[in-house]
Design a protein around this nucleic acid. Structure first.
Lengths: 260, 260
DNA sequence: ACCCTCCGTTGCGTATTGCGGAACTGGGTG
DNA sequence: CACCCAGTTCCGCAATACGCAACGGAGGGT
């Protein structure tokens, strides 16, 4: 009834799970009111209210003014700083992304491999006034993104096969859903040192990515530029790839990996 | 019994509140095991286990290897990117911090006033190889930090008095614990437009901070440089303050506040 | 190689606790 | 002025999360 019913892991603590769902909703929507939250989660307004109240007491949620909608709060920063390991990409990656985004005028992302998806850890918007959506923390399919292909192409063969044998969901008209074709693309990616993504994730969206190398020459992340198809034409790719390579080297150095 | 008993707001959702406490504990300690968490929160191991399990399912917590301690997980990034309002300091502040940290060779921080503490929202390390601790998200006392003094000096008198009348905890040999003396220091801070902090937070640690102004000429944040006492000598202060002022103006402009 | 200890998980019964329903408050609007 | 919509408060019920205790599984010490 309250939940959309069926398969809920009984070992989960319901209210905590719901609270996190609230946070995810706010992170996605930017802001929301109690009624909206309640509707989205499928719980009663009163439940939503208490959940939000609790999060608010810890400053994980804050509200616009006295009687406005709710958003993610500053208290969240306490945790953001504690994300270990991959944190470095976030902190160090920020400036690199910004600089490149300024130069290219396109949105730049840094992504890492996280189990079966590409996880965006850092982002900077290009000059376009379009309030492009926030991709940070977003998980995108490996086979339908430029970053994903780069990361996948560098993964150990066993891992690669495991992911290839999975379900290649179609996201947009151009998505590669054929394992054979994808395997071929990945081989080329490894050879070329970059991957493109032409309307494979979203119609009208193009992207290019190059790998970021760690200290042992292994691929630890991917840095990509994305923008509307008409701006990221095939013709412009070489130029962008070159810019991305520079940024990638910069990133490697800043992360303490000597240039090879 | 389970909780330390008395004054718990009954409107709080207990398990959610505990879950957040788990996250805060992890953020503070870096990592912890179930038993430790349970002990710290004063709950049973099984409760702690389920709480952590739930957070883990949402990737807010991850564990080192298969059987290791728990830490804050990558899923947290989803939210970090969504911190609105003050987020700007994080994104915009990053490059400014980096640039200044490079020039000075010292650690640079941006902090904002968050209820009764100074909250660090952005940081960049200086050239020193010392893996200085990460201050992002850390809450530091207003009376024992340079940023804190700057923020406090700019707070409305009523607020200032309220905080002054509270408990001025001693953090290091030099901490100012006398309200009268602190009031005097704050007056000077307001006049000079900067504040120092000489071994008041930690022995051997010096810092200087200047205010960052918002569009209405109000103080919205503080930017500070910190380093070992022998490097941040009294003599070097004027030079650093000047650099900080430049960065502060830069920051104001980037945040869309016209220079006055 | 054994046992012993320490840590985390699982099953279970209970009552605490969080939930949903409805009534209340308080602003904004026609 | 009356209506409407958003959020909070109160209350009683039972679902839910809790504590307990017993169970596996890894080290580590002798």
């Amino acid at each position: 009834m309250s939940n959309n019913g069926e398969g809920r892991d009984p070992a989960l603590v319901q209210s905590v799970d719901r609270a996190v769902a609230v946070l995810e909703l706010l992170a996605r929507n930017g802001e929301a009111g109690i009624t909206e939250i309640a509707a989205e989660l499928g719980v009663h307004k009163s439940s939503a209210s208490r959940l939000v109240y609790t999060l608010q007491a810890r400053e994980l949620v804050e509200q616009e003014g006295e009687r406005g909608p709710f958003r993610i709060g500053i208290g969240m920063l306490r945790f953001a700083g504690a994300v270990s390991g991959q944190l470095d990409y976030v902190r160090v990656g920020g400036p690199v992304c910004s600089a490149l985004a300024d130069r290219l005028g396109e949105t730049v992302n840094i992504a890492i491999l996280d189990s079966d998806v590409a996880l965006n850890v850092s982002q900077a918007r290009g000059s376009s006034a379009v309030a492009a959506q926030n991709w940070i923390g977003q998980r995108t399919p490996l086979h339908a993104t430029s970053s994903g292909k780069v990361l996948l192409a560098a993964a150990p063969p066993a891992e690669q096969e495991r992911l290839l044998s999975g379900d290649l969901e179609s996201c947009a008209p151009g998505t590669i859903t054929d394992p054979v074709k994808l395997r071929c693309v990945l081989r080329r990616t490894a050879e070329d040192g970059f991957a493109t993504c032409m309307e494979e994730l979203e119609a009208g969206l193009h992207a290019v990515a190059v790998p970021v190398f760690g200290s042992r020459g292994d691929v630890v992340a991917a840095i990509s530029a994305a923008g509307p198809a008409y701006r990221l034409s095939q013709k412009r790719m070489p130029e962008i790839v070159e810019e991305l390579r520079v940024a990638s080297r910069d990133l490697s150095v800043r992360m303490g990996h000597p240039v090879l």
